[in-house]
Design a protein around this nucleic acid. Structure first.
Lengths: 267, 267
DNA sequence: CGCGTTGAAATGTATAGTCATATACTTTGC
DNA sequence: GCAAAGTATATGACTATACATTTCAACGCG
């Protein structure tokens, strides 16, 4: 009954993985891959204990750690549940555009101006991993704050990764919001720069050609391929990104109280 | 010998703090306040065990958690040490300008163009908390990539928070780098926008007045006051910020191996 | 003096429990 | 029928212990 690295059962060759590492990465994988969707119940400690043939402390520590990291939420008597990802990131506040506009106290609306299917070429390399051509959905969408254009969204969606998008009209939800709630993502890369808009873009946004614009390009990757690429062009002084940092990663104070967050009710 | 919330010794009134919370916040406080500088040895588990009159597991869990959060580094037989803050942030890559220029393969240099002491007025409100006027050091510094201006830095340093800055000439290290390595900080707020530079700034940067520029404003706060405010103006297409996110906070895989990081040697 | 051996220090992994606490569900009492 | 009380369950806090692993440092020996 002593503690000994799990020289993983069959073909022991790779780094000997400790039990708690295995449990951690198993659960983490299920969550990050989207196999366990948000709100789904995680096996209770006793189940995991049986499943991995270990003591309660061991699984408990793993779950506690996952809770600290925000991947799961735990509640006494109730159980543990897959947590809701922090909308985009707690640090760089690039929220849903609707939320942004709402924060300005202006009515939000959007208009899909273009919508076209095509196959990817060599130039859209950022969208594909290694594979050749994939079907794409190209969308141009203008976001309005009241009567004023707020942001131009030029997006490409990988239809191989998100086939449902082909049939979606994006009338209720903007493409960004739709994707965010439909597709589990793993990594979002932002590139932020200042540039003068192209003539065409300037015209749509109703600004002069030389007006400085904040251009945010985001590549969102899923488990094994890029899901979407988007370029958001904000007219210069209309927009500002805000980011807050602490020098250290935050050490969550609560061990899993989650008082304010509405607890998912599923089973 | 049972577990019972520490109804904190004297004047029990506030929320009953659990032992591990107390240990955690004690250590966290010492590190975040700068009282324990980077590399300083943290009491070994046995000491903490004695100090807080608890079992080894309890302190061990706290330390392990701090290690996961990156606040400390742990090494067998050696002990635990205050970790080095991740330069600015693992997510928004706004590194030292010197590093940025170096990455472009260009020789880096900088030139302090202005350096002036004054007292803060009502307009510099971002620098002060509630207090009235504080002594300031105003610095303008031009960063060069080869022969080309790369970035203009306009900075204000709170001399109340960093009195040593008054005597510093910033010949070896740029103001930013100097501050970063001298002053412990708690929070950095960035505001990022696109704008046309003012005539004066455009002249210094050697660009046309209408060239879009990426303007990054950063307020860095210490324990109880703002340390410095800086505005970095990058000529438009010369610069791009890059940020990567994952939907969840990263769950550190290693429990404290820290293989590559050079272990501080102090005692 | 240099080199390996050995011991001890410190963390790392894991077990097996106890008691506490929050909460859903069930039973009881009126 | 409905609320109060009780019970079961799942997590949370903590102890005490065992053994593993890594690495510093002291010792012994040629």
């Amino acid at each position: 009954m002593t503690a000994r690295p799990v020289r993983n059962t069959a073909r022991s060759k790779a780094a000997p993985m400790f039990l708690h590492q295995k449990i951690l990465s198993d659960i983490q994988g299920k969550i990050m891959s989207g196999e366990w969707e948000v709100g789904r119940r995680i096996p209770v400690e006793h189940e995991l204990m049986t499943q991995y043939d270990c003591s309660r402390m061991t699984v408990s520590k793993v779950l506690t750690r996952l809770a600290h990291a925000g991947l799961i939420e735990r509640h006494r008597k109730v159980g543990s549940f897959v947590g809701r990802p922090h909308s985009q990131s707690a640090v760089l506040d690039i929220p849903d555009i609707k939320t942004e506009v709402g924060a300005l106290g202006l009515p939000y609306s959007f208009d899909v101006q273009r919508r076209q299917k095509r196959r990817s070429t060599r130039e859209d390399k950022q969208l594909v991993g290694k594979d050749g051509s994939v079907p794409l959905l190209e969308i141009t969408c203008l976001h309005m704050a009241g009567a004023q254009p707020f942001c131009l969204e030029e997006r490409m969606i990988n239809l191989q990764a998100v086939p449902e998008a082909a049939a979606e009209t994006f009338t209720e939800l903007s493409p960004g919001a739709w994707l965010l709630r439909r597709v589990p993502w793993r990594l979002a890369e932002h590139r932020i720069r200042a540039a003068a808009p192209e003539a065409e873009v300037a015209a749509v946004l109703g600004i002069k050609a030389k007006t400085p614009c904040l251009v945010v390009e985001r590549t969102t990757r899923g488990v094994d391929s890029t899901i979407t690429f988007v370029r958001l062009t904000y007219p210069g002084n209309l927009h500002e990104l805000v980011a807050s940092f602490t020098p250290f990663a935050p050490v969550a104070q609560n061990a899993g109280s989650g008082s304010s967050a509405p607890r998912p009710k599923r089973g």
